[in-house]
């Protein structure tokens, strides 16, 4: 999917990016659209300041980039921005995006949808986005939590200093650690660890005294043995021994 976007042979649609506030994600999308395709890019900023974005885009021609800054004043408290969360409606957006006369594929990047969802009802946002999709080419949203994923892919990519994007292999090349040559610990021993067949046979035949065998069991369990055990106890002179209550000291 990422390669398709980079090469520009996709059919357009929604792209939802889930993640943390990360200026490079924006740059990535915008550079994709700018460098690899010849289209207008509209960015609505809620979470990142215009300056922060422009700092990262130094080397990119920005004629095709239209920034709608809602970062400074997203709710119209100070009357200093043109775009506020309340402006997120189909009418306003189509008007805003159709500034250039020739109809051309346009990408709309929204950073972030979470901001809009806090102030506009979800159904409104959904219907607006669906209607927008008919008119636009790509709509990109920024961080928002997605519960269900219909189509999910993981990509590794690298952005170089000159903002070229390299898609790395899908199977991330796990750094192949050269397998350490296992030393055989039994190599240089002064004694023999191995058994010959004869020795093994002798070993298996051997009956150890604690092992139960028929003889053994009978001897131990059936005959109580000649000497029965007795405990001989001679009380010490200082012992406090009570004949009537011999268990007095047990503290029960």
């Amino acid at each position: 999917m990422l390669l398709e976007i980079l090469q520009g042979n996709d059919s357009g649609g929604f792209l939802l990016i889930k993640g943390i506030r990360h200026v490079w994600v924006h740059l990535f999308i915008i550079t994709c659209a700018l460098l690899f395709r010849d289209e207008d890019v509209h960015v609505i900023l809620f979470e990142v300041s215009e300056q922060e974005l422009k700092d990262g885009l130094k080397e990119i021609p920005s004629q095709k980039l239209h920034i709608h800054n809602a970062y400074e004043d997203p709710l119209g408290w100070t009357n200093s921005t043109s775009f506020t969360a309340q402006h997120f409606s189909l009418n306003y957006l189509t008007q805003m995006l159709k500034l250039n006369p020739q109809p051309k594929a346009t990408t709309l990047v929204i950073d972030s949808l979470s901001w809009i969802l806090r102030h506009v009802s979800t159904t409104n946002v959904c219907s607006t986005l669906h209607q927008l999709k008919k008119e636009l080419f790509w709509v990109c949203f920024m961080p928002i939590c997605i519960r269900e994923c219909i189509f999910q892919q993981e990509h590794s990519f690298r952005i170089d200093e000159d903002l070229t994007i390299t898609v790395l292999n899908k199977t991330p090349n796990i750094e192949s650690v050269p397998e350490e040559h296992q030393m055989d610990p039994t190599a240089n021993l002064t004694f023999n660890l191995r058994l010959s067949d004869k020795e093994r046979e002798a070993k298996e035949k051997l009956l150890l005294p604690f092992m139960f065998s028929k003889d053994n069991t009978e001897k131990l369990l059936l005959h109580s043995g000649s000497g029965s055990g007795r405990i001989l106890y001679e009380p010490d002179a200082s012992d406090d021994y009570d004949q009537e209550d011999p268990d007095d000291d047990l503290d029960v």
Partner: peptide, 13 residues
Amino acid sequence: LDFSHYCRATVCS
């Protein structure tokens, strides 16, 4: 959160 965003946009940025 709106308040803190405004504070960030104004004071920080």
